[in-house]
Write a protein that binds this DNA or RNA. Structure first.
Lengths: 186, 186
DNA sequence: TGACAAACGGAGTGCGTACTCCGTATGTTG
DNA sequence: CAACATACGGAGTACGCACTCCGTTTGTCA
C-alpha cells in the first residue's frame, strides 16, 4: 500500500469520526472529504459505501467499550465496577452520538444489525455480561435483568440526552435514578 | 371552507399520523398523500410545509398526554398515579415514535423547539410538574428530580425501545428499573 | 531518473424527495 | 341550472446527496 494512500485513509477515518459525532449519521460524505482535506473520490475508494465507513467507526467504538469492560472484570468491587462503566458509557454517549448508536446496534441480534452480528459486537456483549453476572453474584445488582436491559438503559439515557439542551446536572440526576434502580433492593 | 376541503384535511392528518408513527419523521410526503387517497398538491395546500404537518400532529399528542395528566391529578394515590402515567407514556411511545418525539421536544426550552415553546407544550410540562410534586409530597417519589428528569427518563426508555427488536418482557423489565429508581428510598 | 502502477481530485450522474404550478373538476350560491 | 370561486391532481422543478469515471498526479523501484 502506498504511503499517501495509508495517510489519506487515516485522515478520512479521523474526519469521519469528528463529523459523524457532531452531525450524526446523516452527515454528508462531502463534508467528511472536505474536513479530511481530500477529494470525494478518495473517500469512496477507501470505503466503497458510506455504510462501510460508518461501520468501521462503530466497530472501533464497540471494541473500546469491550476493552474497558474486560479491564474492569478484575476490579475488587464488582458492583462499583459495573456502575462506573455504566456512568462512563453514558457520559461518552451524551456527547458522541455514534458511540451510543454502536452500542444500540450491538445489543441487537436481529437481521439488519451489522455491529450486533460482528465478532467485536458479540465480544462486547459477552464482556458486559460477565461484568454484570459478577456484580449480581456479589449482591450489588438486582437479579431480574440481563445484558439487554443494561444496554437498553444506557442507550436510553444517552439518547434522551441527545435531544435535550441539558446542563450536566440533569444528566447526572437522570443517571442517578437509573443507577439506583439497578441496585439490588435490601 | 368547502366540505371536500375539510374532509381531505382530516384524511391527510389521519394518514400522516399513521405513516409518521410507522416510518418515523423521515417518511415521504408522497406516501402520506397516497395513504390519504389525495394528490400531493392537496397535502401541501393544507400544510404548506412538511414541518407544519408534523407539528400539528405532535401538538395533538402532547395535548392528549396533558389531558391524561390532568385527569390523574385528583387520583387518590399520587405516587401510583404518576408511576401509572410514566408506564402509559412509555408503552405508547414504544410503538408510536411521534408520541415520544413530541414529548422530548416539549421538554426543551431551547430555541428550535416548536412544541416546547407552544402553549400546549408548556401546559403539559406544568401538568406533569403538578403530578410529580404531589407524588413527592406524598413521599412516594424521590425529591431530587424535576419534570425535566422525569421526561428524560420516559423519552430515554422509549427511545431505546425504538431501536431494539424487543419482546415485551425486556421493555417491562427496563421500565421496572427506572420506576424503582424513581421511588423514594426508605 | 525513467517508467509504470497506484492513487488522486472533483465534475458528472442518478435518484429520492420537498415543494410549485396550472389545467381540470367540484361544491356553492343565487 | 348557470356561473364562479374554491379545491383538486400530479407532472414538473430544484436541490441535496451517494456514488462513478477518467484525465492528471504521485509514489515506488529497477
Amino acid at each position: 500500500m502506498r504511503a499517501d494512500a495509508r495517510r489519506n485513509r487515516d485522515r478520512v477515518l479521523e474526519a469521519a469520526r469528528a463529523v459523524f459525532a457532531e452531525r450524526g449519521a446523516s452527515a454528508s460524505t462531502e463534508e467528511i472529504a472536505a474536513k479530511a482535506g481530500v477529494g470525494i473520490g478518495t473517500v469512496f475508494r477507501h470505503f466503497p459505501t458510506k455504510e462501510v465507513l460508518l461501520e468501521a467507526i462503530l466497530l472501533d467504538r464497540v471494541a473500546k467499550i469491550s476493552a474497558e469492560a474486560r479491564r474492569l472484570t478484575t476490579a475488587p468491587d464488582p458492583g462499583a465496577a459495573l456502575l462506573a462503566l455504566v456512568k462512563h458509557m453514558v457520559e461518552q454517549g451524551a456527547t458522541k452520538r455514534m458511540y451510543i448508536n454502536a452500542l444500540a446496534d450491538a445489543g441487537l441480534d436481529s437481521l439488519g444489525s451489522r455491529v450486533g452480528q460482528s465478532t467485536v459486537g458479540r465480544e462486547m456483549v459477552d464482556e458486559l455480561g460477565a461484568l454484570l453476572a459478577r456484580a449480581q453474584v456479589a449482591g450489588a445488582i438486582r437479579h431480574d435483568i440481563g445484558v439487554t436491559e443494561l444496554i437498553a438503559l444506557v442507550v436510553g439515557v444517552s439518547r434522551a440526552a441527545e435531544y435535550t439542551a441539558w446542563d450536566g446536572g440533569v444528566l447526572a440526576r437522570t443517571l442517578e435514578v437509573v443507577i439506583d434502580g439497578l441496585r439490588a433492593r435490601g
